[in-house]
Design a protein around this nucleic acid. Structure first.
Length: 578
RNA sequence: GCGCCAGUAGCUCAGGUGGAUAGAGCAACAGCCUUCUAAGCUGUGGGCCGCAGGUUCGAGUCCUGCCUGGCGCGCCA
């Protein structure tokens, strides 16, 4: 399609005295498929030719007709637009072959490295729907960049350090039970955490003790460290279980504690650069220009508190220095909620002040919050939904639906499919909208199996596999053989499917450009919906017409290949049966 | 008070670089299973694109001001 576009650009440019680039910019897609494949709006020529755009469109259509027909391009005027229609059979044939060979995507990012910081939950708390967003968005981005040929380092910056562990240590010393901790894991830790917070309201000295306990941790007190290590291990085991269910993996779990002994060195870098200013007893880096700090609209970036302790910002700077050494990244993505936008703005501004070449390579990828009844979820307050409860409920419903459809056989297989459907719907629900949108958690919405859902996509994919099974059964040739010798595409009705397939590469590039997995999610909905509409009216298996059967099977296989590839980009494993 | 983000159908949302009659899903209503999975398909109704100016041949899209909501504004991470 690209070569045809170039041909059109060249001809219009030469005939209308426009720059080729100018023509390419002006070209658009008609709003509906039946109007054509490409359109040139004639408005810019109105002044030059001193005629109304519709007149110009008609003239151009006539002038181009013969020339373009030779290339298999039909052109016609439609109001002020000049619309072009390509040879769909030829294009579809090409796309079919590419889709079946898996060569629709080209790796433009080859050789470049992206570090993606995502998921990053605080340990000692159960995995909630709030943690899911960073996890699913980051995971999808990791697949999207990898598909474009980037080298991807997936980093889980665990929240495994800070005063909350002082609190937990205090709670454990007061009421802790090692046997229960070993048996119950995170829920038990949370119980202790909630209790210590409750009791601290009446006994403020507990907060004091918690600060002291965290100080012990930082100073390397063996007993405190031993407890902390157990908390961390128990939590990590639990998270890895959840990540396995979600199909998410990481290359590094270097979290906050990992940078503990690198912070002083990081602060020393700022010191040497002369960026640190003493302010109200704390050490800060001013946000604005060095010569006019008083003009700052933005608050300064605090590096060291007045009591000498380091801050979150100092830790993040240490992490960036380390990651630069470790990965020499071309891009560093922080998949962290939008409330932290200011924090990252400040940290990145400090990098700029240090005149570091990689300052511009660091990007915050914000996303909206998961709310419950319009409020932020809070583990401590108890108004929180846990991911696993949602998975269980979704599984139960999927299983019930499967039993309703068929009194089938294999319960182990059923359970696996139900689990997949549950995870697919939850991940897709999280990714289908622009990431900046807040999500007010709603059971009926996330469990809804109809409409724009992960289940809808899986259903389309599973039905294709149903056709494949039947094709292998009824037709003389196995469907897999079609992959090696793709059929010609003769039916115009399959064009909407190929029109969707043709956009896969540009959608992928767009998704990476904006760090927006929902672009892929929307693309898949378009593709699946085009397929579902086609499926009703076009029967694939037909023993009396093996040639047509073969052609349609090829079309369906092409759709399947793209659908499966797209689902995997989102971190969803395509199902062959449901 | 300042900053960031959002405001499109009853609800949830799509609408690269400004272009043709603003699109989906849910909900509602009406149809479609003797044929490859009805978790599907087809159709109907439903819109001062927050408001007001401006730029332009042309604005949901760009600029300015305002309104509403969310989040954030140094010793939590």
């Amino acid at each position: 399609m690209h070569d045809l576009t170039e041909f059109i650009c060249e001809r219009i440019a030469s005939l209308c005295a426009l720059a080729r680039e100018e023509v390419r910019q002006a070209l658009t897609r008609p709003p509906r498929l039946d109007m054509g494949d490409l359109a040139f709006p004639c408005f810019p020529l109105a002044k030059q030719r001193k005629k109304a755009p519709p007149v110009i469109a008609r003239e151009l259509a006539e002038e181009f007709a013969a020339d373009f027909a030779a290339q298999g391009i039909r052109c016609e005027a439609a109001g002020p637009y000049l619309n072009f229609r390509f040879d769909h059979c030829m294009l579809a044939g090409r796309l079919l072959a590419q889709a079946l060979a898996g060569s629709l995507l080209s790796g433009a990012g080859q050789g470049r490295t992206v570090v993606i910081d995502y998921s990053s939950p605080n340990i000692a708390k159960p995995f909630s729907m709030g943690h899911l967003r960073s996890t699913s968005i980051g995971n999808a981005l990791s697949h999207i960049y990898a598909a474009l040929g980037w080298k991807v380092a997936r980093v889980n910056h665990l929240g495994d350090w800070g005063t909350q562990f002082g609190k937990l240590i205090v709670a454990f010393r007061l009421w802790g039970d090692r046997a229960r901790l070993a048996n119950e894991g995170i829920p038990y830790l949370m119980e202790l955490y909630v209790r210590v917070n409750d009791e601290a309201k009446a006994r403020p000295e507990l907060d004091e003790e918690a600060r002291a306990a965290f100080k012990q941790l930082e100073d390397g007190d063996t007993a405190a460290l031993e407890l902390w290590k157990i908390f961390r291990e128990v939590s990590l085991a639990e998270f890895e279980r959840i990540y396995a269910i979600l199909g998410v993996a990481f290359d590094s779990y270097a979290g906050e504690s990992f940078y503990n002994d690198r912070i002083e060195a990081a602060i020393a870098v700022l010191e040497r650069a002369g960026l640190l200013i003493r302010s109200e007893g704390a050490l800060v880096v001013a946000a604005g220009e060095p010569d006019a700090p008083e003009k700052d609209a933005a608050p300064p970036c605090m590096i060291r508190k007045s009591d000498g302790a380091s801050t979150y910002a100092a830790r993040d700077l240490a992490a960036i220095f380390y990651r630069w050494q470790e990965y020499a990244f071309d891009r560093l993505l922080y998949v962290v909620g939008s409330p932290q936008a200011l924090h990252f703005k400040q940290v990145f501004a400090v990098l700029k002040k240090l005149d570091l070449a990689y300052a511009d390579r660091c990007v915050h990828i914000p996303f909206g919050q998961v709310l419950l009844n319009g409020e932020m979820m809070s583990t401590r307050k108890g108004n929180v939904i846990f991911l696993e409860d949602v998975i269980k409920e979704a599984e139960t419903r999927a299983l019930a639906k499967m039993r309703e459809n068929s009194e089938s056989s294999d319960t182990a297989c059923e359970a696996e499919i139900a689990r997949n459907l549950a995870v697919s719907s939850i991940i897709f629900y999280d990714l289908k909208n622009g990431r900046i949108k807040d999500v007010d958690f709603n059971w009926e919405e996330i469990l809804n199996p109809h409409g724009e859902t992960g289940i809808y996509l899986q259903y389309a994919h599973a039905r294709i596999h149903g056709i494949m099974r039947k094709y292998d059964e009824r037709m003389s040739e196995p469907s897999a053989a079609i992959i090696n010798s793709p059929p010609r595409v003769t039916e115009e009705e399959s064009w909407p499917l190929f029109d969707a397939i043709a956009r896969f590469q540009e959608k992928l590039a767009l998704a990476a450009e904006h760090n927006e997995p929902s672009v892929i999610a929307r693309f898949l909905l378009d593709l699946a919906s085009a397929f579902s509409a086609w499926y009703r009216v076009h029967r694939v298996i037909n023993e009396d017409n093996p040639v047509l059967s073969r052609e349609r099977m090829g079309v369906v296989l092409a759709v399947r290949a793209v659908l499966a590839q797209g689902l995997r980009l989102l971190g969803i494993t395509p199902l062959e049966k449901m």
